[in-house]
Design a protein around this nucleic acid. Structure first.
Length: 573
RNA sequence: GCCGGUAUAGCGUAGUGGUAGCGCAGCGGUUUUGUAAACCGCUGGUCGGGGGUUCGAAUCCCUCUGCCGGCUCCA
């Protein structure tokens, strides 16, 4: 039998549970699966587990591995399993979940018994080396109304060397963390006094604007019209839209002269207000209204994360108001746009596509839902993207496609999305109408969609994706000119003016530093091109080009450098 | 919001009950330099806020806030 990583991780989880039970008698165990990069196990015990407990636990795990006992699989009857699990209340509840008639398998290693589907390693020494990483709270069955258990996370290596290599990789990944690079590269800061709100510094805002301009050009090419709607809108509107009932806890509410207003958490009502501002014909559909709308959501404090999850952010939002027949083509059109955009950033294998289907709590009849889900699926397939289905994870008003990107530490973030909405334009909500070919009034369907998701989150992903070394077109400082002595500063200014006239973002390092230090500073700042301008260069009318990652390219004429830069910009390098 | 951890200068950190240190950055000066760090000097901290224990608290306790790791939720 081939021993897989998953088997070793899952088996390590069992031994971790055994170790915790050995060291802390009376521990209640829940479940402990393998994950993409290790495993976890959930426990309920009096003692608060802490990293200080890890050395003792790891020692015990190592001891159990060294015993090299076999993992013995058995199939047992329900009462027999229940008898063996006596006193383990979570295990017994899990046992009760298993449908009648299904085979119940168990694994036993030494004196440790567990109900488990497996598969496992044959004997414990095959696990390798185990390291515990962190302990965190986790609701039983993932339900916030349940008791919070203690979850221990661990990683597994075939041997100590592989484990060490994995830990080293994690350390490297941490260096890409956007929270760290954001400060190091002077892109933005977050003020503890105003949690979840971003202060964009000149360099970060340059990236932001470059990304927004890029997206704007794509939208206009794709038949969108850009609009802008108020940041603060009245309670009455939010009541009609349904947000007051369903989303109030996440809204910042304010007041003026006894009237209540809320800062918008979403842009959709604004778009529909524009649609409704005059009589519309079926000939106006699909109407694609794009908005870089700034939204404020009062997210729970524990969910905030750098610039990925904040309370103030801008979506590259758009609302497509169309007929039901137009849904499929509009979704397909969106998928093509998204794919085209993501390709420019090299997102491919770290992209997950999910189709979230009808939840239990939903509006609308089932046939409509099925039609809508099929339309999303077909459009997704038509653009050549594979998706996985998340049953019951759709919004109450419609199904959605979610496009999730992975950050430096392997955490998923939903970025792009397209959601079908029959509800908001309906008579019960904002009552949007158009005149059909039959001269009668009809309610349109609305698609909420974003390609990047939020600019803030997407830039966070980009910082980690590029490890701060942005491609030329996004780099806040594209070229830095390094005069070797004060004498070349006028020459440097001449070059700077010539490049700036072409729209490039250029700075001069006129400090008293030596060339070596200027190069180091430019390298640390991850500037794509450093142009050395010394006496020799000035005499020859050239610049000595140093490219990020490639090093010294030697001297070249300014027009040759410009041609090179144009090439990079064209290729989004 | 929940569970756990944590908080020392802009950033990285030392300091376990007895006068808050170091590196980098910043600022001033000297140096005018050819491909990853010149030299000298200076500034900067009511040790996250509040309360308590103590003759004395960065250090021990309580509490609030932020942050970190997860969970729930989400762009």
């Amino acid at each position: 039998m081939e021993i897989t990583d998953e088997m070793r991780r899952h088996s390590a989880a069992h031994l971790t549970a055994r170790a915790v039970c050995n060291l802390f008698p009376g521990t209640q165990t829940d479940i402990g699966p393998a994950t993409d990069d290790g495993f976890y196990y959930d426990f309920d015990l009096e003692h608060r587990l802490a990293p200080e407990d890890f050395p003792a636990l790891e020692k015990e795990i190592a001891r159990l591995i060294a015993l090299d006992e076999p993992f013995v699989r058995a199939e047992m009857s329900r009462p027999d399993v229940a008898a063996r699990l006596a006193g383990q209340k979570y295990k017994l509840e899990r046992l009760a979940d298993i449908p009648e008639g299904e085979t119940i398998s168990t694994y036993e290693v030494g004196d440790y018994f567990e109900m488990c589907r497996g598969p496992h390693v044959e004997h414990s020494a095959q696990i390798g080396a185990v390291k515990l990483m962190k302990v965190a709270g986790s609701y039983y069955r993932g339900d916030e109304n349940n008791k919070m258990l203690q979850r221990v996370y661990g990683i597994v290596g075939k041997d100590q060397a592989e484990l060490d290599a994995y830990v080293a990789r994690l350390e490297e990944a941490k260096k890409r963390d956007h929270r760290r690079l954001g400060v190091e590269l002077d892109l933005f800061h977050l003020d503890p006094e105003d949690p979840g709100q971003i202060f964009w510094h000149p360099k970060g805002w340059t990236i932001y604007v470059a990304l927004q301009d890029y997206m704007r050009a794509k939208l206009i090419k794709d038949g969108y019209q850009e609009v802008n709607t108020p940041a603060i809108m009245p309670r009455s509107l939010w009541e009609r839209s349904g947000h007051w009932d369903h989303y109030k806890a996440n809204m910042f509410v304010t007041e003026s002269e006894k009237r209540v207003f809320a800062v918008k958490p979403m842009n959709c009502p604004g778009a529909l207000e524009i649609f409704k501002s005059r009589m519309r014909s079926y000939k106006d559909l699909p109407l694609r209204l794009a908005e870089f709308g700034h939204c404020a959501r009062n997210e729970p404090s524990g969910t905030l994360h750098g610039i990925m999850r904040v309370r103030g952010f801008v979506q590259d939002d758009a609302h497509i108001i169309c007929t039901e027949e137009q849904i499929e083509e509009e979704v397909a059109k969106f998928c093509r746009l998204l794919k085209d955009v993501y390709k420019d950033f090299g997102f491919d294998k770290n992209l997950l596509v999910k189709l979230s289907t009808m939840p239990e709590d939903h509006v609308g009849d089932e046939a409509t839902w099925q039609h809508a889900e099929a339309a999303l699926a077909a459009a997704c397939k038509a653009s050549g993207m594979d998706y996985e289905i998340q049953p019951g994870e759709g919004a109450f008003y419609g199904p959605k496609l979610e496009f999730t990107l992975i950050d430096a530490l392997g955490r998923p973030w939903q970025c792009g999305t397209i959601q079908l909405d029959y509800q908001l334009p309906s008579a019960e909500r904002l009552n949007a109408e158009y005149i059909g070919p039959d001269s009668q009034k009809h309610h349109p369907v609305m698609l909420h969609r974003a390609v990047l998701g939020s600019l803030e989150r997407f830039i966070g992903i980009l910082i980690e994706h590029y490890a701060g070394s942005f491609p030329l077109w996004l780099s806040p400082e594209q070229v830095r000119i390094l005069p070797i002595t004060d004498k070349q500063v006028p020459y440097a200014q001449k070059i700077r003016d010539a490049l700036a006239a072409r729209g490039l973002r250029v700075e001069i390092d006129a400090s008293a530093d030596k060339l070596g230090a200027k190069i180091r500073n430019g390298t640390v700042a991850k500037v794509p091109y450093l142009l050395v301008a010394g006496g020799r260069d000035e005499a020859a009318g050239v610049v000595s080009v140093r490219q990020r990652g490639a090093g010294d390219l030697g001297a070249m004429k300014l027009e040759d450098f410009i041609a090179k830069v144009d090439e990079d910009l064209k290729n989004k390098q």
